[in-house]
Design a protein around this nucleic acid. Structure first.
Lengths: 226, 226
DNA sequence: GACAGAACAGCTGCATACAGCTTAACTCCA
DNA sequence: TGGAGTTAAGCTGTATGCAGCTGTTCTGTC
């Protein structure tokens, strides 16, 4: 009764996933680097794993192809793309700008539900620090992103935010692998500052907090990869 | 020999279009309002028209579904969505912001090729004014948009610009129908100002020119529809 | 005549079979 | 043994048939 959504995020053991479910799982796996750049996502294998035919798998791949994270080549396979240094730079540059817009274009005043969710995330982030692992970290980041999305009033901006999040997520996973618990501390700081902003119902502050932390992340990415 | 691309933009008479071609044609038809909101895009009919099976048509529809311009409902059909007043507002708000970013994030210095293309567009726009029709107007706008895209250095911003263009295009077509040659005059002004910016190699000016004219368009849309 | 119910037509979602392309391995010859 | 040509395996792209869902229409009853 209480497992209507997101209760089986990575697993597919249950019964008959449709194209939409597969789309979600594939994106999550790319963000969690379970599929690494140059990996081949063979439609037949995925179909077998999910217990469906190639058709819904193809539909899912087609629907996420616009993100540039995968590319299908006839006769070869569907490969996971490694975003070039330039592309990563562009995505982070845009996320910096988009963050500033959260509080400026059709802003939403965050409410108590948002606060509750943030407090829950903060709790989980603290638990995570007791035995840090990148997967758990990125999953919390996932939930945080999903929450921030609900605080973006402009639907167009919301879509762009999601898009760039997916594009940057796997890069950020690699940072978490390399830096370890340090990024967890930063996440706790980010959550604390977000909580303050939400307590005041200040969407603009929220955007600036995000901007600051994206800038921090961008700095780390530049140091480590670019 | 000289008909390698865009020579048959709307037509499908030739031979064997693949999913990518179909995707382009469908988007164009939506932008030109050949498909109006609540219209049903039946896969079987489109397949017959393009001389292929339903499969590549489905692939094309899936690949553009993220724009929110169409929505497939099981048992019903794939319907063209009417963007709500709020959605239109959001898209225009974002285009205003994105325009300002053209000259700020990874800008490109426009060169002589851009200038040549703009002059050609200006010429065509002037010809159009001798007997204005919305279709011709939107097609020139299409070419202008394609050109501006090549002046956007940040790939992520480029994708967002394209996305919002497709989402706003059909709305703009309706404005052209209602206002007639007046929008053509505005287009000529826009092109003239863009030419000045490009002559100076000033990407920032280019972005501001776009911002101003998007704002003009937004004003008209608000007056007429919102 | 009006309304409830059932049968029907039509569409998308999915499954399966086939064709075309690409890569890699394998063979044959020098 | 090295290399060019050929063959074979495997993947995506496409075609086609079937199942499930939805809106409509037709029928039977009150």
């Amino acid at each position: 009764m209480n497992h209507d959504a997101a209760s089986t995020p990575p697993l597919a053991a249950d019964k008959k996933m449709d194209a939409v479910d597969i789309q979600r799982v594939l994106l999550e796996r790319i963000c969690l680097l379970r599929y690494k750049p140059d990996d081949q996502l063979k439609e037949a294998l995925l179909a077998a794993e999910f217990g469906v035919s190639r058709t819904p798998v193809r539909d899912a791949l087609n629907r996420i192809s616009h993100l540039g994270l995968i590319e299908s080549r006839n006769g070869v396979g569907t490969v996971v793309m490694q975003l070039s240094a330039e592309q990563i730079q562009h995505v982070y540059e845009m996320r910096l700008e988009l963050a500033s817009l959260i509080g400026r274009v059709s802003p939403i005043t965050p409410g108590p539900a948002h606060l509750t969710a943030l407090l829950s995330l903060l709790e989980d982030a603290r638990v995570l620090q007791q035995s840090f692992d990148p997967d758990g970290y990125v999953l919390i980041n996932h939930r945080l992103n999903a929450l921030i999305v609900t605080m973006i009033g402009n639907q167009s901006l919301r879509a762009m935010w999601q898009q760039t999040y997916f594009q940057a997520a796997s890069t950020w996973y690699r940072v978490a692998e390399l830096l370890g618990p340090a990024v967890g501390d930063t996440l706790i700081n980010e959550l604390s500052e977000l909580i303050e902003a939400v307590k005041m119902g200040d969407a603009e502050a929220l955007g600036y907090v995000e901007r600051v932390h994206i800038n921090y992340g961008y700095t780390k990415v530049k140091q480590l990869f670019l």
